[in-house]
Nucleic acid binder design. Sequence first.
DNA 1: AACTGAATGTAGCGATCGCTACAAGGCAAA
DNA 2: TTTGCCTTGTAGCGATCGCTACATTCAGTT
Lengths: 179, 179
Amino acid sequence: MAKPPLSRETLLPQLAAHVLNHGLGGASLRPLAKAAGTSDRMLIYHFGNKEQLVADLLDHIAGIYSAALESAIGEQPSATRQECFDRILAQGRHPMMQPFMVLWWEIVAGAARGIPGYREAGEQMMAKQLAWLEKQMPEGDPDPKGGARFLMTLLEGSIMLDTVGHERTAEEGIAAGHL
Amino acid sequence: MAKPPLSRETLLPQLAAHVLNHGLGGASLRPLAKAAGTSDRMLIYHFGNKEQLVADLLDHIAGIYSAALESAIGEQPSATRQECFDRILAQGRHPMMQPFMVLWWEIVAGAARGIPGYREAGEQMMAKQLAWLEKQMPEGDPDPKGGARFLMTLLEGSIMLDTVGHERTAEEGIAAGHL
DNA sequence: AACTGAATGTAGCGATCGCTACAAGGCAAA
DNA sequence: TTTGCCTTGTAGCGATCGCTACATTCAGTT
């Protein structure tokens, strides 16, 4: 077993995997290093300090997210906005997505508190999601660009309400608001 | 200057004030104690452990939030859903509200990660906000109950998008989605 | 072979974390 | 006065935090 080279690039995927499973805020150097098969000493060596490591990591995760969206494109198109909304919300609620969601709210919370790198990562991920959503809009939609933004706002609100136990609230709101 | 008695009840307001200004996740016992004019030793004595302290604190903050909403009721009513939405969003965007927002996203993130007490506090605060929003709905609204849930979903989505730098996205979405 | 600089291991720094052991003070009941 | 409980101060525990000093190994150049 040849020892693989260690660098930012080889480290980041393993660090990202650990963060997706164990959270971002509570991640400290030693567990991160262990997950990546190295030492805290080397993480600092390669990234300079923890703040830079987190910033690079968030950027990398945003890239992963983009790639995941790219590969998830081209399903059968939705016929209506309602159907489009329902499908994407169901996908977001899937247990498989939970690690992403946990991380996502950490990013939002970090952005709100002004932690360096968080807002940029969140902005980037939302921009990517928005672009993806535009392509998912129904074929003959009269205003795909505005509609995508409208659906996105509703989707994110719904997911947040889910997170604090208000699934019903969002559902009843959508039912009442003729999409 | 008589020394005020120390108990959960007298401590909680001061702890809440500190948390609103310095965040919840990063709050450790010693700074909290200092802000409340006591010692970490006494915080543990009164609350048992930190987890219980945070749970009690979140409950208390939810109460503060409820009271703030109660007292903010009875402004001039909105004529349309759009006006209602605009007014509340503008209020949420006010710099004065930022400490609440920072804390709010911490609560959501904590709820997503399953930290004890976070989800309950978030649920309670959202329930209160929803009840408040129902009373803020326009006078002759055909479906105030469903409409409030719909507006709330949009509002929360908008505020989240704001937080990661997508103010325009939410605004354009609302403009496109004839309320 | 000698030199050089990047990569890595070992060990530990000072700070902070949540929490506890222990003793002393305050006060009301006996 | 004595007893006993509630409250509080002092001190410190073991663990973990981000980070660094120092020495060593290793690859490539000359």
